[in-house]
Design a protein around this nucleic acid. Structure first.
Lengths: 329, 329
DNA sequence: TTGTATGCGTTATCAT
DNA sequence: ATGATAACGCATACAA
């Protein structure tokens, strides 16, 4: 690897001049500019980002912490974040924690020691106090899908409640009146909000509240919840599943039980669109604009890094994608 | 962020001593050791990894280049690689290219400029010559799922041919004699190998070669291929799909056409297990041990970084996971 | 055992 | 417009 010194020698100028040409800082004659650029090409010179960061006392690195890579949500998130930051000449360093407070703190330490100028956190385990402390320490960071009072300007969030409401409303408009909600435990904020949205719609449309909670929003939970539901009652015409994995589990149960979607049972799910395209018939789904959200996050973070005043980020609203899992009654 | 200077001052020693204590290089009295460690704790000192890498002229960074994050293959790969390298105190930097030679070259440049001591490449677009040149340039790197003559010691590969053979053999043993192969274009090596494995089995078991190629191994290709197949003939009792996405598409077609798996048609697929657990009935699938492969890759790369002699990495063999998509005739 | 001094590759300040 | 030169934070060869 050739260094700035090699370029300087070959071009017959000083390293300072090379740096100026490359970073477009300060004036310089067209002729020397040419020489430098020629030398750079000839040596196939790549600036050492480490040294640059060290010298500038600030890097172009942005750290991302997540607790999983699995599922289309993370694939879309990581993919779009990386692309957006690269468009701003930032480099995204990704670090995976394992859903415990300690591992999340460690991941953040690690990212900070890589001179990340800012962090993007999809934190599950850190407490509100941890995050407030981090803000206190003047660390630039944004939170994804988490709301912390006092950190409103850093939270990129979803309207979980509205998404559930949208799902139930769709079923209602299609003539359904016995609509069950399949969910998991209520530990996470998003889970509580989704249920609240269901409850809200139930009240507004004067429906019966049929809520089945089971497990952790995964495939098995969906299967068991559906099984539990239909062992109790047969008058339900539609279900709303609170996660895509639960939807998969419910479909699995229906296949086992010989129930046909949508003829025997209508389904609306929530979450990313991928899984719901895989199932047959494809599932009508309430989704969030993950890509838009990633772009907004990048803008938010870049604003913080530039020292610009914080603007409360948008709260992202869900869209409903209509497929073939709902029967009109 | 406090620096090594702050620690040295607080501990009343020189920076050299602090460095020695922290890196456990050279001797030092227990007392000064105590003082240094106390100072480190008090200041919550984190060594600046950039500066360290710069000083050592070698970093603990390993670069990973992929062309996609989507799909369970990449989720498992990235996840396991990151964990394995972290266990070795290496940090994995991930960079996404976009399936063109230029973008792959650019991604590699980027990773090199981050002082990556080694690279892990899942390259689709680089030529064999590009990769040979990279080796010529003394870059440490490993290739995933790609075989380049002359770089045998760096290639972590799969037995694609055997995986297809295994799928067909399973169907044969279950009594099937009319077995169709659904694939996409034959550009990629893995695609050719999988078809070759099918052809091999066809010959051995004296079956009819019923091959339908359509599109690019994606869901739509699977749908169209299945449609094409059944518009031509009705005597086929089983299909072998060359990718999980094609399998999804085939299932979609069967649902549309009113064909039941496995009663009307048996299915065996290839690839990661995730998608095939989502479909109902779950699909009997030939999979590769992605986690093992990631661990082997990490070991291979670390060996190279330590200057140890290269050992030809294992070629990973497929496993068949039996589910409910095959009928015994 | 410990400290001094130098270099890693870059940027930035100050001269010229 | 350009060139010395001093940082940036750390590791290390060499002295002491």
């Amino acid at each position: 690897m050739s260094s700035i010194n090699d370029v300087a020698k070959l071009a017959g100028v000083s390293t300072a001049t090379v740096s100026r040409v490359l970073n477009d800082t300060g004036q310089c004659s067209p002729r020397t500019q040419q020489k430098v650029i020629a030398a750079v090409k000839e040596l196939n010179y790549q600036p050492n980002i480490l040294a640059r960061s060290l010298a500038k006392a600030s890097s172009d690195n942005v750290g991302l912490m997540v607790n999983s890579y699995r599922g289309s949500f993370f694939a879309a998130l990581v993919s779009q974040l990386q692309e957006s930051f690269e468009n701003q000449n930032k480099f995204l360093l990704t670090c995976r924690a394992s859903s415990s407070r300690e591992s999340e703190l460690q991941a953040i330490s690690r990212l900070k020691s890589m001179s990340c100028a800012a962090l993007v956190l999809h934190s599950r385990a850190l407490t509100d106090e941890d995050l407030l402390q981090l803000a206190e320490d003047k660390v630039h960071f944004a939170l994804i899908d988490r709301f912390v009072p006092g950190l409103e300007d850093r939270c990129v969030t979803f309207k979980h409640r509205k998404s559930a409401r949208l799902a139930v409303e769709h079923l209602y408009k299609k003539g359904h009146r016995k609509i069950a909600c399949l969910s998991g435990t209520m530990e996470r904020h998003s889970a509580r909000e989704r249920y609240a949205g269901y409850a809200e719609a139930v009240e507004e449309f004067e429906l019966e509240d049929i809520h089945i909670g089971y497990g952790h929003y995964n495939q098995d939970g969906g299967y068991k919840a559906a099984e539990k539901l239909f062992s109790r009652r047969s008058d339900v015409t539609a279900i709303f599943t609170c996660s895509e994995q639960m939807c998969v589990g419910a479909y699995e149960y229906f296949h086992h039980a010989g129930l046909r979607v949508p003829d025997d049972i209508s389904v609306v799910s929530i979450d990313s669109v991928d899984v719901c395209q895989i199932l047959s018939p494809k599932v009508t789904t309430v989704t969030f604009p993950i890509e838009d959200m990633a772009i907004e996050t990048q803008e938010l973070v870049c604003r913080m890094m530039d020292g610009k005043p914080a603007i409360k980020p948008a709260v992202f609203t869900p869209n409903i994608k209509i497929f073939h899992s709902v029967k009109t009654l």
